[in-house]
């Protein structure tokens, strides 16, 4: 698993400390494509590797990754500019179970940077490539300045139901204020035909799972994208072992009914 060399074609500063890189393979590299929910290991030379989910679409050339600078490796990636190169291994992981959505109502529930791994799902719906009855997006962020893909959210709102809320805002913010569970709790759902994809901070996902189950949605129809310390990304090193699974190999997307036995065990 030798990293391929990719060049940064485009760099977008989403907000301070959060940026999106569009990557193109070097001339001698194979073109990699990711399914929604899969991830690549991005290698900042001399600093190390980090797992980053795809946040682009399979139809456009190159790879798109949105990254928050919060550790040594991601800070090194943050310093890279257009034209710079980085190493890339992938794709890894299973991705969102799009094939199981036929005729279903899909709830996409994202918190903070958790919108990035779900953006390919939104793109797929907008491009008409998903065989679903409907898609609704519920998105929560800390404050207005930290709303990810803000201009895109407005565009998406013209094509599908988008409910965005922030935890804190001043009175000049025209949108919703409150946590993500508030609009979810009043949403009208058909529990027999609803499937939920959730990605965000683990505490947020716990509250959302509880709320969805309270509304009658089966644990088998709730999917979560998990995050743990991944190193090899091939299920060998054991860093991301979670219960009987390796998140890099068996996840990062899990069905709640499959993982609920160890979901609440704090030491895992």
């Amino acid at each position: 698993m030798i990293p391929a060399v990719y060049r940064i074609e485009r760099r977008i500063e989403e907000m301070p400390g959060t940026f999106t890189l569009s990557l193109l393979p070097g001339a001698r590299e194979e073109v990699v494509s990711l399914r929604p929910g899969q991830f690549n290991m991005l290698y900042a030379f001399g600093a190390g590797e980090v797992p980053i989910s795809s946040s682009g679409t399979a139809d456009t050339p190159g790879l798109v990754h949105t990254i928050r600078a919060q550790g040594a490796v991601t800070r090194a990636l943050e310093r890279l500019r257009e034209g710079d190169t980085l190493g890339l291994r992938g794709p890894f992981g299973n991705g969102w179970p799009v094939a199981r959505l036929a005729g279903r109502e899909l709830l996409v529930i994202a918190g903070g940077l958790g919108l990035a791994p779900l953006r390919p799902i939104i793109y797929a719906q907008l491009q008409g490539s998903m065989n679903v009855h409907s898609v609704r997006l519920f998105y929560g962020a800390r404050r207005p300045a930290e709303v990810l893909y803000r201009s895109e959210l407005e565009q998406w709102g013209r094509a599908l139901e988008v409910v965005a809320t922030v935890d804190h805002a001043d009175v000049n913010w025209p949108g919703r204020v409150g946590v993500i569970t508030a609009p979810l709790s009043t949403a009208q759902l058909d529990p027999q035909h609803t499937v939920a994809f959730i990605c965000g901070p683990e505490i947020m996902m716990r509250f959302c799972v509880q709320l969805l189950m309270g509304k009658g949605i089966s644990p088998a129809n709730i999917y979560l994208s998990m995050e743990r310390n991944m190193k090899c990304a091939t299920g060998h090193c054991g860093h991301c072992q979670w219960g009987p699974n390796f998140i890099c190999r068996d996840g990062p997307v899990f069905r709640y009914s499959d993982i609920r036995g160890w979901w609440q065990i704090p030491a895992l």
């Binding site: 490796v73 929560g140 935890d167 409150g178 509250f207 310390n229």
Partner: peptide, 23 residues
Amino acid sequence: LQATRLQLLDIYGERPGPAEGSS
């Protein structure tokens, strides 16, 4: 009350991610 607790937890605040805990 649950919503207020969640709001107080500031769940989207920056914390070192497990993916980079030792990086």
